[in-house]
Amino acid sequence: MNKTDSFAISELKTIGLTPFIYCSNQALFQVNRNVPLVDALSMASDFLFLAKDLTREAAFNRDTDRHIWAAHYLTAMSKALVDDVTKVLERGPDRESKKAKQ
């Protein structure tokens, strides 16, 4: 990867095509468009860190399930972010540059 490629990757943004948290078979939330991929992945990492802590706490505190539900929603958001980033990376830079030329 040369310097131009790494610059191009740092310019990539989410496409906002990934829904998460469904209610009555309809997506309640969706990843927003135009978030830099680095920021999206950083947020997904933060969500997963919190979910990991919540699941560990839930293993020791069996009086309530609130930790588990919080971890469930955090992992759903993390997955949506990672899936949206993956969609952008799978498209490849050639598709983006072709769209810009049109």
Rank of each mutant, 00 (worst) to 15 (best):
residue 76 A to V: 09
residue 87 K to Y: 13
residue 92 G to C: 08
residue 102 Q to S: 10
residue 20 F to A: 08
residue 10 S to E: 15
residue 14 T to E: 07
residue 21 I to R: 14
residue 78 S to F: 03
residue 93 P to E: 10
residue 5 D to E: 12
residue 64 T to N: 02
residue 57 E to M: 05
residue 7 F to T: 09
residue 81 L to Y: 04
residue 37 L to N: 03
residue 73 Y to D: 05
residue 49 F to C: 02
residue 17 L to W: 13
residue 82 V to F: 03
residue 64 T to E: 05
residue 5 D to P: 00
residue 32 N to A: 12
residue 54 L to H: 02
residue 21 I to T: 14
residue 26 Q to N: 06
residue 83 D to I: 11
residue 62 R to D: 12
residue 101 K to N: 07
residue 45 S to D: 12
residue 10 S to F: 13
residue 97 S to R: 15
residue 8 A to G: 01
residue 3 K to N: 09
residue 58 A to Q: 14
residue 55 T to Y: 09
residue 33 R to M: 12
residue 59 A to V: 00
residue 15 I to M: 15
residue 71 A to Y: 03
residue 93 P to Q: 11
residue 5 D to A: 06
residue 93 P to K: 06
residue 66 R to W: 00
residue 90 E to S: 08
residue 48 L to S: 11
residue 67 H to I: 00
residue 75 T to F: 03
residue 51 A to P: 07
residue 72 H to N: 04
residue 51 A to T: 09
residue 52 K to M: 09
residue 78 S to K: 04
residue 44 A to V: 12
residue 29 F to C: 15
residue 16 G to V: 06
residue 97 S to W: 12
residue 51 A to K: 01
residue 34 N to K: 04
residue 34 N to C: 06
residue 46 D to V: 05
residue 9 I to N: 07
residue 102 Q to F: 04
residue 18 T to R: 10
residue 70 A to C: 10
residue 89 L to S: 08
residue 74 L to E: 03
residue 83 D to N: 12
residue 101 K to E: 12
residue 66 R to C: 01
residue 67 H to L: 01
residue 22 Y to C: 03
residue 89 L to P: 11
residue 99 K to Q: 06
residue 29 F to Y: 14
residue 100 A to L: 05
residue 29 F to E: 15
residue 59 A to R: 07
residue 8 A to D: 10
residue 69 W to R: 08
residue 41 L to F: 02
residue 99 K to M: 02
residue 73 Y to V: 00
residue 29 F to T: 14
residue 13 K to W: 09
residue 90 E to P: 00
residue 90 E to R: 13
residue 49 F to W: 02
residue 40 A to N: 07
residue 102 Q to P: 02
residue 46 D to R: 04
residue 77 M to Q: 13
residue 14 T to V: 09
residue 22 Y to D: 09
residue 64 T to R: 03
residue 10 S to P: 00
residue 23 C to D: 12
residue 37 L to A: 02
residue 33 R to K: 14
residue 91 R to M: 13
residue 8 A to M: 13
residue 9 I to S: 04
residue 43 M to A: 10
residue 94 D to T: 10
residue 8 A to V: 06
residue 6 S to I: 15
residue 98 K to L: 10
residue 66 R to N: 01
residue 32 N to I: 11
residue 43 M to P: 01
residue 66 R to T: 01
residue 49 F to S: 07
residue 46 D to T: 11
residue 46 D to H: 10
residue 87 K to S: 14
residue 68 I to P: 01
residue 35 V to R: 03
residue 36 P to R: 00
